[in-house]
Design a protein around this nucleic acid. Sequence first.
RNA 1: GCGGGUAUGGUGAAAUUGGUAGACACGCCAGACUUAGGAUCUGGUGCCGCAAGGUGUGAAGGUUCGAGUCCUUUUACCCGCACCA
Length: 957
Amino acid sequence: MKYHHEKIEAKWQQYWAENQTFAASNNSEKPKYYVLDMFPYPSGAGLHVGHPLGYIASDIVARYKRHQGFNVLHPQGYDSFGLPAEQYAIQTGQHPADTTRMNIEGGVDKSGNTIQGYRNQLDRIGFSFDWSREVRTSNPDYYKHTQWIFIQLFESWYNKNSDKAESICTLIQEFEKNGNANVNAVCDDNIAPFSAEDWKSFSSEQQQKILLQYRLTYLAETEVNWCAALGTVLANDEIVNGVSERGGHPVVRKKMTQWSMRISAYAERLLQGLNEIDWSESIKESQRNWIGKSVGAMVSFKVIASEAKQSIEVFTTRPDTIFGVTFMTLAPEHELVSQITTPEQKAAVEAYVEATAKRSERERMADVKTISGVFTGAYAEHPFTKEPIPVWIGDYVLAGYGTGAVMAVPCGDERDYAFANFFKGTNGMPAIKNIFNQDISEAAYGEKGGFELVNSDFLNGLDYKSGTKKIIEELEKIGAGNAKVNYRLRDAVFSRQRYWGEPFPVYYVNGLPQMIDKKHLPIVLPEVEKYLPTEDGQPPLGNAPVWAWDSENNAVVNNDLIDNTKVFPLELNTMPGWAGSSWYWMRYMDAHNTEEFANEEAIKYWESVDLYIGGSEHATGHLLYSRFWNKFLKDRGYAPTEEPFKKLINQGMILGMSAFVYRSEDSKTLYSKGLIKDKNVHPIHVDLSVINDITNELDIEKFKNHPLYSDYANAEFILEDGKYIVGREVEKMSKSKYNVVSPDDICEEYGADTLRLYEMFLGPLEQSKPWNTAGITGVSGFLKKLWRLYFDDNGSVIVNDEPTAEMYKSLHKTIKKVTEDIENFSFNTSVSQFMICVNELQQLKCNHRAILEPLAILVSPYAPHIAEELWSALGHEGSIATVAFPKFEAKYLVESEKEYPVSFNGKMRFTIKLPLDLTAAQIEEIVMADERTQAQLQGRTPNKVIIVPGKIINLVG
RNA sequence: GCGGGUAUGGUGAAAUUGGUAGACACGCCAGACUUAGGAUCUGGUGCCGCAAGGUGUGAAGGUUCGAGUCCUUUUACCCGCACCA
């Protein structure tokens, strides 16, 4: 009987589906275990072999945990809102919902291309997903709850006293009782104080405006990142190096009224929570970086001769250096710039401000070495010395960080030092004040230690720590400053000017946002004719003819009915891509609940994700937003734990092996790889279908007939040894590089079990590595060998005889190793161990049930189809999925002898087999008597003999 | 510049945490059987050397009886952040 993967795999996949083998129960006597994959965006390109890597790993853990007796939740779904579907809709006019469905379920698209569909591709690999809990973020029955969470955020504020989010009602009560004097909230800056009487006297509109400044999601005119090419605003994490992450388009700062999420309220908790979770250090560092906590002080400098009594607020991490302040610098965008500039400096300042505004964010970032700035002519007063300090503007100060103004201490800060030296001797730039007992003639002294403060009045003689403490006391005494913790983390913009996203459950009365009652959710995405922005620049939903809210009948109605008394306009923006993914792991807990996002019991039972596997590209996006929403939901009583993902593993990327042919300048000649030296040739990517992936030989006929390469049909091929050898290079797998390997093809040829084993065998899970199909024959051969332990040409060969000690040893070595490996996520070494075990059992001609039965279970998490088949060949009914995992028993590994390495001065010379129960003295005696030892010593006596019983023998001297 | 990570044969990689470096595979070499094949099986394969032997984990030092593993310095590459006050 031969091993036919195609029959076996189809059979068991069907069995699992029909028997709901992997459906998790929400109440079980077993302990729970929740293994989650980051759900995919279903793109039209389909899966390549890189996508399933993490899913295979999580599936191994899920299956292993089932064998260990856990009730395992291992769900899968789709993050199905997103830009590509919308761009495709703009180009082709097809509804994103239709193309998205096809990308998931498969079919034939409008141009006649067959789309496999994510679901079909995933099913072929034999994952143990509980598909009964599938979610799609773009389904109304899902985003209904995303809208509900949004409303909860709107109905909440962050109370710093209780250090958590509370219902907005508690805030209103406080306003009614005491006004806002005692309110300690994370809110907008510069909220005017008001009393309880004031509050009661305010109109409803005034009250709404005030509350908006406190809500956890709020509508405000803020500086946003506007990407004209995408026609939408972007969150900070969607911008990389000053351009959009998607498409690389330029991004500018722009003031717009947008929904924002007050994630800054959670900055400290997001930071502290990192200490409790088992994530890689690099992701945690990224998040710490992103949150960017710095501890220091706010200092206020009065502007001299200013009628309006303005003052410049600065944040500094070095308040101890205050006596070294030589000048001040404002960001060119700072609001005081226009007010304080003197008439003489006006022209220069305006020219500078204008020039900076023209430069894109990217230019400014790229060009950090050029020093530029202008003196405003104004002076501020030093809070202690009362000396006048010149105020400059310069683009090295960022408007978006701190207060957009710095107190410049050139003796202690590299940038201030460079700025001061650049403008040395010009109007408004005094000599550098040095307040350190250090030489600053060459460079600033930036260290926080190793100095004593001088020329610093009451701070003289102090160091960083004591100086900082002292100065903050003094600042507070004179009311010119206070200790302050500053975070880099900004509130997240939550509006997108796109079609394919969740609509907001919001309508506007007199320009003020109103939430639609939760009982009317979902507010379903309206139909539009065009997915582009409207002609007057409104978001795509501005094209929807039926997009108004009838507040009397609680229904979405035709825009013609808008009268602003009963029928009002609805919000035209949609939510960003991260909205749906910020809570989806909770939906899996109770995916069919129509009333709530998940039932309280279900949430309590599954609690949080025990193991989360996904890519590290979500380090500061999804993984931060999810933690934020989880903390918020916990505050409001909807989530049981502070952190949603206990353990996180980031799988590495699987890279492609691109293939190249080399064409001459005139494209008439193609050279084989070995012949391109010293020739002027251009490499061109060639599709992997026209080469032999193993021998790297080009199939010239296929190449010539391939539509992509028709230009070369008449080219001359210069061969080496009668073959045309292509060049290979490691690159990211992508359609445009023609290096994509599809898991379907691998399953077709070698089977899903081989694919699974090979992806794991490739190397450590977290490491990036190139895909090379050539190596797959190793694991493919392994499965055939495994099969032959159970069957010969005529069928089953299993006997019930008692196995030998060697067979038991081989088995138990494997049980031990595989158990440890799965616990440590070291899947590659398990595969090696399986190979070793099967090689040994083959040598021992093992066909004993007592060995082969546990072996099938051991293999089952990795290669589940063959394991099921072997299990049933052993005479068992039903699935192997929940059969108890074999237990390691040390007694089978007990050795009586050890092959000791004998070293001389640390160099191994020979080995000697000795019983393990010998004492060190006995070992020494035997070793010294050995003729090989005498030969090595050549008559000398060793100075020292080191014997570690069971490990090593080393003779020194 | 700051932070995190990686470096071992021709290739992917192991190494019980300080104890025989290169397990397991791919590739390559030799052989067997074959309907001559990208099948199966056997043996070999870090490098230098016919051999004995020498040498070897990016580089240089150090600790140790013993270092891929620990310490110091250093180089290269990858990832994240970055005029962050």
